[in-house]
């Protein structure tokens, strides 16, 4: 397998996570989605990635949930937790805080403030 095959596998896995954000996603799910055995998927993923599969899934979920909570001020943190496959808001809060260093509520406030100041130049 070369780097293009790996990129294609990652793209497929990202697309799968993005359409199944409300589920608890396992190695079996992503391997099935890519038509690979769990063993083969894990071997390829580990060879090219500097994250574990769990870290990868969590990062995609955290980044997508952060976008959603920043642009949707009406939705509660509990609803977001459920929407991202967490069984309660406290487990979601914990993972979020570990990832961003602030709670989802604090993050939402920060983003509202930043949004009114300037566009990032990337």
């Amino acid at each position: 397998m070369n780097i293009d095959d790996y990129k294609r596998l990652i793209n497929k896995t990202e697309d799968y996570i993005e359409t199944n954000l409300d589920k608890r996603i396992t190695l079996t799910d992503v391997a099935n989605n890519a038509n690979f055995s769990e063993y083969h998927f894990h071997r390829i993923f580990s060879k090219f990635s500097n994250e574990t599969l769990k870290q990868f899934i969590t990062r995609i979920k955290m980044e997508r949930s952060a976008i959603y909570l920043a642009i949707n001020s009406d939705i509660s943190i509990t609803e977001i937790a459920f929407q991202y496959g967490y069984s309660c808001s406290s487990s979601y809060n914990k993972v979020f805080k570990k990832h961003y260093g602030v709670s989802p509520t604090e993050f939402r406030k920060e983003q509202e403030w930043k949004r009114n100041i300037k566009q990032p130049d990337v």
């Binding site: 990202e14 980044e63 976008i67 920043a70 983003q111 990032p120 990337v122």
Partner: peptide
Amino acid sequence: YHDNPFIT
């Protein structure tokens, strides 16, 4: 655009 430059 899959991500948001404010966040990612």
